[in-house]
Write a protein that binds this DNA or RNA. Structure first.
Lengths: 234, 234
DNA sequence: GCGACATGTCAACATGTGTTCACATTATTA
DNA sequence: TAATAATGTGAACACATGTTGACATGTCGC
């Protein structure tokens, strides 16, 4: 019963700055990210592989993580920190003077963060779709959080005030989809192709513009009764 | 130099109906799909594992595939056949009498096919984001094909006639995104929850409706000059 | 200094893996 | 039916993996 469990509390903010332990712990995480640069996904990584890449003997791994699954969650954690940072940056990009400007700054912020933290975003994108259940849920949860925040932001826009919550969610998820897809496309851009990147950005902006435009004339009365619109069509 | 290579031509349509060979080849593919039911991705499968699940000794595997990579491509092939089938079904769902009806039948067709071929669609969804490069590109290519088809369909709609090709692509990719995301959400629905499934479907329809609505008043002149719209400020 | 704890290392194990070779069985066809 | 190719089997290999235990080194508080 005297088992130590140093991994349980990864975010000690009390005493240990980056004692040697913290440093190799980080080294392990970095190694994992590095190994995922190719087309390898996290589940394809082996414990020994990660240790090797981190310049550490396999057994040392256990000093910091119980197993690979826990490493995975730590990676999600680290990544989420940069994701939240990106989101915060996007939201507080100064007061919104115009809708068009909001769109542009949001997309530009996204692009900047994706390029600055390529590995993190690639990790999220991959594991969101294919990761093991634990990771996947962790990421989904974070996305849902962002979704709700966005819905709240939308509900305060003049044009969208008094929308039903269902419609607001629908709109928010539409926007989030575009952002996620845009991020994925940015990750696929061959790094040294600013033109292709520009194209992706332009398209994202266009798509956002289109749906914001639609929002201005989305019928609000008769919640689900829009079907009446095609009444005469059999 | 007298090496046989039976795997090179997987789609003989001449003589061999399902000779024993074809049958265990299929057994191997089925086994792989079955093993991916949990949260395992293809790259996490081992050759022996697949052979075992297929009720066959590991060495027999080599009679049909050179290695796992080739099995993967075969899976993509098989899956793509059902995908194309789904797409064809969606396109030829009778003459479009109303836009609303087109949306409903498209979404319903999608839902039906996803449920009927859960494993196939799950496979595509996972490997699209995280698969090794070969598979990934194969899938992407197929999606691009569909994208172009859709853009063509759109260009023939009365409201969208004379749109620029760039705008048509933008619109098409927006729609495809919604469809893909909807498919993924349907896959996450816990199987015996028709209500949740209904919610997903309703949302997808709503999103499509919103987009189509926007299309009716999307400005066509002044390609990128929409920015002028926010002149007077928020 | 010294003790106590945290980290890191070495050696070893059982197990799973991809791949090979020679051989058995089945199907096809002459 | 007999020959021939296609398909399946068994044993064996070299290797990588996860995990363990006992031991070495570092680091920090006293």
């Amino acid at each position: 019963m005297s088992e130590r469990e140093p991994f349980e509390a990864p975010s000690r903010d009390g005493g240990g700055r980056d004692s040697r332990g913290q440093r190799t712990r980080q080294a392990l995480q970095d190694a994992a990210f590095r190994l995922m640069e190719g087309d390898k996904s996290f589940s394809a990584l082996s414990l020994r592989e990660v240790a090797r890449e981190a310049g550490v003997v396999p057994t040392a791994f256990y000093r910091h993580f119980r197993d690979m699954k826990e490493l995975g969650l730590a990676l999600v954690d680290e990544t989420m920190r940069t994701l939240r940072q990106a989101i915060r940056a996007a939201r507080s990009a100064g007061p919104v003077v115009s809708e068009e400007q909001a769109i542009r700054s949001a997309v530009e912020t996204l692009a900047r963060h994706v390029q600055a933290h390529r590995l993190h975003f690639r990790f999220i994108a991959r594991e969101l779709a294919s990761g093991r259940t634990a990771m996947r849920q962790a990421i989904r949860h974070e996305v849902d959080l962002f979704l709700r925040e966005l819905a709240l932001d939308l509900s305060r826009m003049p044009a969208l005030i008094q929308w039903s919550t269902e419609d607001l969610q629908m709109m928010a998820s539409l926007i989030v989809n575009i952002l996620i897809d845009t991020a994925e496309q940015l990750l696929d851009v061959p790094a040294r192709r600013p033109e292709a990147e520009e194209a992706v950005i332009r398209m994202a902006e266009k798509q956002l513009r289109l749906i914001m435009l639609a929002a201005t004339l989305w019928p609000q009365e008769s919640a689900a009764g829009l079907a009446a619109r095609d009444g005469k069509g059999q």
